[in-house]
Computed example of a mutant assay.
Amino acid sequence: MPARRCLVTGAGRGIGAAVAQRLSAEGHSVALTARSGEELSALAARLPGPSLVVPADLTDPTAADTVISRVEAEWGGPVEVLVLNAGAGTSAPLARTTDEDWARMLELNLTAPFRLLRRALPGMVEQRWGRVVAVASIAAKAGDPYVSAYTASKHGLLGLVRSAAAEVATKGVTVNAVCPGFVDTPMTADTVATISATTGRTEAEARDTLARRQPIGRLIDPEEVADVVLMCVHSSAITGQGLNVDGGTVQS
């Protein structure tokens, strides 16, 4: 594959950082966005290829245009590979999920990816080549208690992916989602801390509980998610899919 112009959101750590490393190692130019400029700069310094640091709060309605316009201006062409990884979770019983919790999950996990996809797709369609990969969750496939807002946002993201994929299927552009289970990332560490604080179990016990929820008996490594993201980037025949990377938790 020739070198492509890539944009990875939520790139500072975890899955986003692993994906950025892999894309850069393959010779692509990789733009990095997240709220933390320091994390992005530290990652950019480790990448072997060209990179661009564009800190942004993707819940800002103007951020999608600002970030993508910067990539276009710096590298002279449209974003060709868009990895929609930025996201967050929240946990509460449904009856105690506030309007603010609900709005925050939808804004970051669904509306921000929608805006980025809407902004990037025309450039991909115009040159008749593009790859979009959204990092969703197995919460896009099945419901668990106490994560209704997060689950709804991820179900919505998978729906967005499927509809967009159908719309551009004849244009040389693919749109897919990767649906991880519990991955060994800072987000999972936050979940472990919450479980420990609310149940009295140690963090080691809480972490083991999450690992055992997956049939393989361990957390997923971020590199394993990056493997599937890169597969979607390489393939012109995979589109409209939600590919589980969950150790066999959800069989579909």
Rank of each mutant, 00 (worst) to 15 (best):
L47D: 03
V125P: 04
C6N: 09
A86E: 04
A226L: 03
A134D: 04
D184A: 14
V178A: 01
N244Q: 11
A142H: 10
V133F: 08
R4M: 10
V192I: 14
N176D: 11
E72N: 07
G248E: 09
R201I: 13
T111H: 04
T209A: 07
G14I: 06
V250E: 11
R70C: 12
R118S: 13
E167R: 09
E100G: 10
D221K: 13
G240Y: 07
Q127P: 12
V228I: 13
T170F: 13
A88F: 06
D60P: 08
L47I: 07
A166D: 14
G181N: 04
D65K: 14
T170K: 14
L160A: 09
V133L: 07
R213I: 03
N109D: 14
T97A: 01
T191A: 14
V135S: 01
T198D: 11
V79P: 00
V245N: 03
L7N: 04
E74F: 00
N109W: 09
A139V: 02
Q241I: 04
S148H: 06
S196L: 11
L94I: 12
R162S: 05
T62M: 14
E74P: 00
V81T: 06
V135D: 01
I68Y: 03
V79S: 01
V8T: 00
G76E: 09
A169F: 14
S137Y: 04
D144W: 13
A166C: 14
R128A: 15
S148Y: 05
V19L: 11
G10W: 00
A139C: 10
T249Q: 06
K171R: 15
L94M: 08
H28P: 09
G77R: 08
S163M: 12
A3D: 15
L116V: 04
N85V: 04
S148K: 06
S69R: 13
V161W: 03
A166T: 15
D60E: 09
S163Y: 11
T90A: 15
A25Q: 15
A42Y: 00
G181Q: 03
V19N: 08
T59I: 10
L47S: 06
D144V: 13
V71P: 00
S91A: 05
A64Q: 10
G10H: 02
L40C: 02
E38R: 06
R70V: 13
